[in-house]
Nucleic acid binder design. Sequence first.
DNA 1: CTGTTAGCGCATTCAG
DNA 2: CTGAATGCGCTAACAG
Lengths: 361, 361
Amino acid sequence: MAVTLADVAARAGVSSATVSRVLNGNYPVAGSTRERVQRAVAELDYVVNGQARALAAATSDLVGVLVNDVADPFFGLIASALQAEVGVGAAEPGGKLTVVCNTGGSPEAELTYLTLLERQRAAGVVLTGGAVDSPAHSTAVLARLARLAASGTRIVLCGRPALTLPGESAPLTTLAFDNHGGARRLTEHLLSLGHRRIGYVTGPPERSTTGHRLAGHRAALAGHGMGPGTDAGADADQLIVHGGYDRNAGFDATLELLRRDVGVTAIVAANDTVALGVCAALRDRGLSVPGDVSVAGFDDLPFSADASPALTTVRIPLQEAGARAGRLVMGRTAPPPGGVATIATELMVRGSTAPPATRRS
Amino acid sequence: MAVTLADVAARAGVSSATVSRVLNGNYPVAGSTRERVQRAVAELDYVVNGQARALAAATSDLVGVLVNDVADPFFGLIASALQAEVGVGAAEPGGKLTVVCNTGGSPEAELTYLTLLERQRAAGVVLTGGAVDSPAHSTAVLARLARLAASGTRIVLCGRPALTLPGESAPLTTLAFDNHGGARRLTEHLLSLGHRRIGYVTGPPERSTTGHRLAGHRAALAGHGMGPGTDAGADADQLIVHGGYDRNAGFDATLELLRRDVGVTAIVAANDTVALGVCAALRDRGLSVPGDVSVAGFDDLPFSADASPALTTVRIPLQEAGARAGRLVMGRTAPPPGGVATIATELMVRGSTAPPATRRS
DNA sequence: CTGTTAGCGCATTCAG
DNA sequence: CTGAATGCGCTAACAG
């Protein structure tokens, strides 16, 4: 079958131990023998067996990254930057392979993939995207992570709320996105434009990201005396529609919002993808953006700047975060003090938001 | 350290071979012992060591997929569909982990990753996207693929020209995209609208996809008596600008096209991403789409339908192709007869193309 | 049906 | 500096 260390050793007239040594360059080897071995390696087109090496050395060449779906640019950008940092190109040798796992947002899939990665004794695991806010699931995930951590696997959370392993004092290394602050500033922007009836199309209710963004939105409203319990906040629930994170969710939610006839002059979407759906629905109903209704998204995905009108949104530096997560999981950079770093988000004001039309009729 | 097969065996009071058997379920085991073993496994939270298993059984749980960049939706969609088919969710057990490798279009990176995957004795490898048209590189890739194939790794090409291993009669399993036909129909569409001066912003000249699409474009022109050597084709080169596959390339190329002042009434872009850049540049110059200039893309990425005007483009069923590639690399479906299947592309006429403005001044 | 015995291919002691 | 010996954790014959 494939050529092995022993074959190379025979060819070079040395012991397999010596071949191993020149391959790994960890031990002193005479220049002449080294050369002889390297020639044999080249002549035989020898390629080490990673599995055998991993077994013997108790190491791994794999880094896992759990995403909802790589096809979603939000995750694609993170995964891409991460892979670039973890993979071969990354200056230093010892590049690792990136295993991308699409969980589709399913808690079971998440657990299954964590087990699979444990099976492979992955060198590191990065969990991205909002967590599913369920005690049962959190416990299960935490248990898996604890075992991974115990076996030496580096763990990094990216875009997830910090998590602390049972028995630990500091939380796991975490890059948290400032969803709350970004959402707050976004809604404040709309308020400052003069909007008072702001619709909100949220993401899946069970995801932590949804909760944080919604909380930021509410904080902004409360800051302007429009909190619950106030006159202005009386029918706040009517202004909120729950949906998914895809375009259709935005489309449908918008139709629902219009059906409720609550007089929205602006709509904030769970993310940019949803925002596109919102815009499409508005156009479909003959409403112009931002003439009749302002629209805002979240994430600042690449297509947002090219939409027309260009989307007002909140920028998350996904590539930077992904790259940093990659460096962290490779142990090439030190974890932030206290374990968790909050990644700042930035309000991007573009053409899709404007002052509300002056009251008429 | 971690709990091993032997630990489980001791705990269950059986031999490690028996534990292995119930784990793999390949051999008959008495119900009672099976149960005892399973209990021990659960109590000890045992997780098999994939590397040891792979070494002993000469199998692998990894499938590699080479892409230019997962962050590019073109590749993200393929990778996502592929992963879904290869991974855990996929009905049958034995789901494998997907290793995503961003080559960034670099031939060296491509070779390096192929070697890394060989090292891991990957069960399969999928190469996506256009190939780099260089004899030297093709030879090198072919050599790597030959060795992979020889060691039992399944190989699938997706969106790449078919390739035949030296000494083989049939080409490797390939899902080729009908770039030529799609491009031809797209240009014919523009011609039928009345356009005669059609600019073309191509992709990187060394990529096979670029060549095929450009050839389709030229075929359409030739079919309308506008081939090279004809009057209409006299300055054909002036209508073509080479660029990259990103948005900026489209932007810059369009400015160049306008600078040449060759009177284009329509511009065909290398792909949808480039087309967005083209639109942006036109708008930047005060030209309307499609009023002043029609624009068309290629690929039909998700954002294309949401651009405004919505982009006329050529649809490639990327997810279907990715899923099929996944099934092929898993050996769950038979290769197409002759090894290569050509995936049909479909012209999607939308708002960004219209008849040229009537001649004026 | 189940235990015993060998390796899988490599890294790593321990001698020399 | 180099070779011989041992074991990583598991599967796969081979006997019972």
